[in-house]
Design a protein around this nucleic acid. Structure first.
Length: 472
RNA sequence: GGCGGUGUAGCCAAGUGGUUAAGGCGGAGGAUUGCAAAUCCUCUAUUCCCCGGUUCGAAUCCGGGCGCCGCCUCCA
């Protein structure tokens, strides 16, 4: 079975194979560092992290690049408001970005290039376009002459004519035609600027991605990704710039994740309609947020409601409960279990997981396979365990952890308590059990409830009381 | 107005031609428990926005309608 990926360019799911042997080059548009991240950014990051991990699981050597836009209009404005430099603003949000991504379990990219560190490459690219007569300079600004690129509109599925009909922006009088876009912007007073053949200025937004993608990954890349809102104009323009300059196909697969909505309205900073990642992380473990973001197919819209994360948390608890129960039961047979016998029922669900992932990264379906295994395990756990059932349980836990690993879930990075805290809990349990023997239920229940509020769940079993920590 | 997408139970969400429409959350009843929690069992869409059509057979294909969303301006 082979991997199929939906390609925005062809509007079809296509068999995936890399341009070069075993190597996959992947560029994903990153964030502009002018404000906090929200769940929408988190979704894009997690989605492409999954794609990257799955390709790696498949044995490909993935070179993954995602950029930081560290200079643009909004950043300049924000820096002014905060009375700091654009550079300081960028530094602040980069640090926060890595910190939050780590909590979400997003692996670092191979490269995280910053726009301002690639001005030279951008200027070179603009020069090529200018020499070809595709770019033109007007009074310190440089524009891309869209009419000169015949393929313009192929990604967004619109012709130049259709686009022109919908123009509702104030057209810059310097442009020859409304849809020409800026490659280089003339410096304004008090703004960061760089020297160029056309005078002081700064790069337009689209050029950075073309320049950096080509620098790190070559003229043609396997996968280019980003949110659906970037299809037009950003990615359309990237294609125009890149392909006009090289004459080669820029990206073989264009992959776009659906947007996160709240009350069915797009989550966006510009509208004030958003949940920041920080807020979400204050209330829930990063793994819960990650799970939530994977609970819908990556191309579908994902509507956030106030209960979404609670629901995700409850679902994850189910898996963790089972894994812990299995660990308790199979503790003694670990060594033997490593022989890995084959159990057809387990194998078929294991297969379902990979078939789902192969089908354009269908994570909801893949997660369902995990839950079906959880159910099987719970059924076995109901009965008194014998050696054979322990072996099966061990195998199930192994498989769940392996599948979870690909999704970056269920790896048990749970809150650890130090020995003293554990001893304290044990004291409370011992005291409570004395109270229970004396049938002083009100006090016993109070202890249980208060521990519960701290995320420590007590389980009264036949002859002992055990405890565990919840993930949220 | 143009382009793209979407409409599946109380909620979230798979499924895109064929025996019982995944999975999760929530809810109801039962088992278990001192009571809980966890877990198990049963129930919770005779039906997939509506109307036509194609077909032996459609949630799944086609036509029409309605609703919602995104893009066309910065945006993951």
């Amino acid at each position: 079975m082979g991997l199929k990926i939906y390609n925005t360019l062809t509007r079809k799911k296509q068999d995936f194979s890399p341009l070069n042997d075993n190597q996959v080059t992947m560029y994903v548009c990153g964030v502009t560092l002018y404000d906090e991240l929200h769940l929408g950014h988190a979704r894009a990051a997690v989605v492409f992290d999954i794609i990257r991990r799955y390709l790696e699981y498949k044995g490909y050597q993935v070179i993954y690049v995602t950029n930081f836009t560290d200079v643009d209009d909004k950043m300049i404005q924000r820096a002014k408001e905060l009375k700091i430099t654009v550079f300081e603003l960028a530094e602040r949000f980069i640090e926060e970005y890595f910190d939050q991504m780590e909590k979400l379990g997003v692996k670092r990219a191979t490269y995280h290039p910053r726009a301002t560190e690639h001005i030279k490459e951008m200027i070179e690219l603009i020069e090529i376009l200018k020499n070809k007569g595709i770019a033109y300079c007007v009074d310190g600004d440089v524009f891309f002459r869209v009419r000169k690129f015949p393929g313009y509109g192929k990604l967004s599925g619109q012709s130049l004519k259709e686009l022109s009909a919908g123009v509702r922006i104030d057209v810059d009088e310097k442009k020859e035609e409304p849809f020409d876009f800026a490659l280089w912007k003339k410096a304004k007073e008090g703004e960061p600027s760089w020297d160029s053949p056309w005078g002081k200025g700064r790069p337009g937004w689209h050029i950075e991605c073309s320049a950096m993608a080509m620098k790190y990954l070559g003229e043609s890349i396997d996968i280019h990704g980003g949110g659906k809102d970037l299809i037009f104009p950003h990615h359309e323009n990237e294609i125009a710039q890149s392909e006009a300059s090289t004459g080669k196909e820029f990206a073989h697969f264009w992959v776009h994740n659906g947007l996160v909505t709240i009350d069915n309205q797009k989550m966006a900073k510009s509208t004030g309609n958003f949940i920041t990642l920080r807020e979400a992380l204050e209330k829930y473990d990063g793994e819960v947020i990650r799970y939530y973001l994977l609970s819908a197919h990556y191309r579908s819209p994902l509507n956030y409601t106030k209960d979404s994360l609670q629901e995700a948390s409850a679902s994850m608890e189910r898996v963790y409960n089972t894994l812990e129960s299995i660990d308790e039961v199979t503790f003694s047979i670990k060594k033997e279990a490593n022989l890995h016998k084959v159990y057809p029922e387990i194998e078929s669900l294991y297969k379902k997981f990979f078939q789902s992932m192969d089908d354009d990264f269908n994570t909801p379906s893949a997660l369902a396979a995990i839950f079906e295994l959880v159910r099987k395990a719970n059924l076995i756990l109901e009965k008194p365990s014998d050696k054979n059932s322990k072996l099966i349980l061990y195998e199930i836990a192994e498989k769940i952890r392996k599948m979870g690993g690909i999704l970056g879930l269920f790896q048990g990075k749970k809150k650890k308590l130090d020995e003293k805290a554990k001893d304290l809990i044990q004291i409370l349990i011992d005291v409570r059990n004395i109270l229970r023997q004396e049938k002083r239920w009100d006090l016993a229940d109070t202890i249980r409830e208060r521990l519960q509020k701290l995320g420590i769940h007590l389980k009264d079993e036949k002859d002992k009381t055990s405890w565990r920590i919840s993930i949220t």
